[in-house]
Design a protein around this nucleic acid. Structure first.
Lengths: 234, 234
DNA sequence: TTAATTCTTGACCATGTGGTCAGTTTTCGC
DNA sequence: GCGAAAACTGACCACATGGTCAAGAATTAA
């Protein structure tokens, strides 16, 4: 079972022999590695900004510093390039989907959850925007992923939250809405960056800003659903 | 000062005589009204789904049930159509930007704010997604609006929140982050509808779901920032 | 050095793009 | 009914699109 299927990305079946496209740690020569890195970086930026349809290979090729035909030599087609980027994003996301159990401390788990979400939004804003663009367009490539892998993840976390509520460690809020609240409020700072910067009249958010926001969100969530906060070295 | 400027949408100067495009309550004959309504509805859907670049006039024309040349007869150009949609959205948004004062009750104001935001997300999901798509792409047309009108609105609300905090009616949280929290968590249900539906395994969110979510978000926000909730007929 | 493999590229193609325009049809005030 | 204004439309244009291909250049393995 290859990664495309594991991640539920609706890839067209490509019966070609594996040319290294579906492996994360890239194989192939040093030239290929360098060029593919440049391509993926450029493509992610532009797909995130203009969506799948609104992106042209010509533009990606320019930003990657090579003629369009060379781009196509590496990526095969626009579709394959896009799917590959989605897969890479889902892989990154999965790093965060670590296991928790009902025995863990709610405050610690929720804090860590919010913090890591904020960090991902900061470290990979283009990935975040690419994902947002895909969902905004109705998730044509990610239906399977959403209804499968991601749904399972949410359900299992929900069970843990429920257990915490039953044991009186937090209020009996709907776990799914809670997860959505955390997702939306954290991703906002990547996806709506233009709005955030415009309103706060900044060129960029500093590390201090991010820390500030993270603390704010953590406090709102913990207090909001009745979890006693762990004291952090404030 | 026409509406385009009032709303800060970066329209190209169109020195043509007013043909009714920049007036909300449409003038012109009944045929024009009917056709423009169809066009705007179709265009909003498709722009929201595929972004500005990813949308073709051909597709809009089909959905609006007329040939492309007829479409262009009404809207002038793709740009003008897009700008017009943004203006309409900003106008709708403004309905919500009603005045509040430091003398109002925090719980009531915040509750009403969240509720109206959720209702707009429900009544005009395409508008919400259009706006999201524009921001995601770096807000090329809305820079002025964000840094002007909307920023002013946020700053004035912030002052009120600050006053409430000073009077001990709520915790001294950063008002701007609080506004972003409310915006993001409510708009999520329009913009990320595909994700919400996929994960909750539904075809659509019911009115009861929406009421449920609204209550959840209200409770989280009020409790989270230490506002005593008004009792609602639960 | 040689031979195979990988890489690079411009020319090219069918199709789609936003937009124009001339000419026709329909609607509407009188 | 008549004339003007509004509405409609197919043909057309220059250009961009995703993608192919053949042929050459660079790299690597023997």
């Amino acid at each position: 079972m290859d990664k495309a299927r594991r991640h539920g990305v609706q890839n067209e079946q490509q019966s070609e022999p594996d040319n290294g496209h579906s492996v994360e740690q890239e194989s192939g020569g040093v030239i290929r590695q360098r060029n593919e890195r440049a391509i993926l970086a450029a493509a992610e930026r532009i797909f995130a900004q203009h969506g799948y349809r609104g992106t042209s290979l010509q533009q990606i090729a320019e930003q990657a510093g090579m003629p369009k035909s060379n781009l196509l030599y590496y990526v095969g087609s626009k579709r394959k390039l896009y799917v590959r980027l989605l897969e890479r994003t889902m892989t990154r996301w999965n790093v965060m989907l670590d296991n928790i159990s009902a025995d863990d401390d709610p405050a610690e788990v929720l804090s860590a959850f919010i913090r890591s979400k904020m960090q991902i939004s900061r470290q990979h804003p283009e990935s975040s925007r690419l994902f947002a663009s895909e969902i905004l367009g109705g998730a044509p490539f990610l239906q399977e992923y959403l209804r499968g892998e991601l749904r399972d993840w949410v359900l299992s976390r929900s069970a843990v939250f429920k257990a915490w509520a039953d044991r009186g460690l937090m209020d009996p809020v709907d776990p799914v809405w809670l997860i959505f609240l955390i997702w939306s409020s954290t991703q906002h700072y990547a996806d709506f960056e233009a709005q955030v910067l415009g309103i706060t009249d900044r060129d960029a958010l500093s590390d201090d800003d991010l820390e500030d926001i993270t603390r704010f969100l953590t406090r709102m969530v913990l207090k909001g659903c009745g979890v006693k906060a762990v004291e952090l070295s404030q």
